[in-house]
């Protein structure tokens, strides 16, 4: 008798659980969020393809019962582009981490966004390289600590959502493992969006990020997100001093734009029609 809730029985490879993530790591919450969004949308499991890169986040593809592809570090979006263009019927979801996506994967991230290809990218942002033992990443806040920045980083960190919007994504949102219901809603909207969707899901890494930066354990990290997340709509009304130390969540961008694969398929149809006409 396979273990787990109805959702787990339906969408997870429960014989592969418990997963490898550390106690209190937010990744499990976000992974469940992805599956909840798929369930809410009643997607056909056979047509869902989850592509992941390398790192803690990217082990998620092995636990979920879809067409799953665990690729090389930073390259999930490039693999996913091949899958999506080859079979546009597939609902392609990329699971990636802050390092996987915005460090080694940065070039593929901005180009997938530029193309506005119909792929939903969920960035499990734990602000550190967890799998390799706690090095800082492009998402580690400036001056914070990682095992390769024992004195605090001097690397300014990306605002991943601004990067995603600037590169051309048609849907961009940020939420956290604490605000899991909101996160599920954003993932759903990302999947529904016919274009490149980016959902930055701030996770919690108690083992390295929390410990190295003295931000406490899993519960402390969850509370930190609860107390310091500020929705962009609320933020608009607040004076500057109220925003100090807060980070913005919410939907940053939603725009209908031509989608890459459908635009390409128009060309294929046009070209084939023209050829058959003058044959």
């Amino acid at each position: 008798m396979s273990l787990g809730s109805p959702i787990v029985k339906e969408y997870f490879r429960s014989d592969r659980l418990p997963h490898i993530w550390c106690p209190g790591c937010g990744h499990g919450v976000i992974m469940r969020g992805v599956v909840m969004a798929i369930d809410n949308l009643k997607l056909d499991k056979k047509k869902v393809c989850v592509v992941s890169g390398i790192g803690c986040s990217s082990r998620a593809s092995g636990y979920m019962d879809f067409n799953t592809l665990h690729t090389t570090h930073g390259r999930a979006l490039a693999f996913a582009t091949g899958v999506k263009l080859a079979n546009p019927e597939l609902e392609v979801i990329v699971v990636t981490g802050d390092g996987d996506c915005t460090a080694i994967g940065g070039n593929h991230f901005i180009h997938a966004a530029r193309r506005n290809i119909d792929i939903t990218t969920i960035i499990f942002n734990n602000k550190i390289y967890g799998m390799t033992g706690g090095q800082y990443s492009p998402a580690t806040p400036l001056h914070e600590v990682g095992t390769t920045a024992p004195y605090g980083t001097v690397d300014p960190d990306f605002d991943i959502c601004k990067l995603a919007v600037g590169a051309g994504s048609s849907y961009v949102a940020r939420s956290t493992a604490y605000h899991a219901n909101q996160l599920i809603k954003y993932i759903q909207k990302g999947i529904e969006n016919k274009g490149f969707s980016v959902i930055e899901a701030i996770s919690g890494c108690p083992t390295y990020y929390g410990r190295k930066n003295k931000k406490g354990d899993a519960v402390d990290l969850m509370n930190y997100y609860k107390d310091n997340a500020l929705d962009i709509k609320a933020a608009e009304k607040l004076p500057e001093d109220k925003k100090v130390g807060k980070f913005l969540t919410g939907e940053f961008h939603h725009e209908a734009k031509p989608e890459y694969v459908s635009e390409y398929m128009k060309i294929v149809e046009k070209v084939q029609k023209e050829r058959s006409e003058n044959e």
């Binding site: 592509v51 592809l69 090389t72 390259r75 996913a80 091949g82 899958v83 999506k84 263009l85 080859a86």
Partner: peptide, 8 residues
């Protein structure tokens, strides 16, 4: 990467 995805 893309040709591997397409082959799959």
């Amino acid at each position: 990467a893309a040709i591997i995805g397409a082959s799959l």
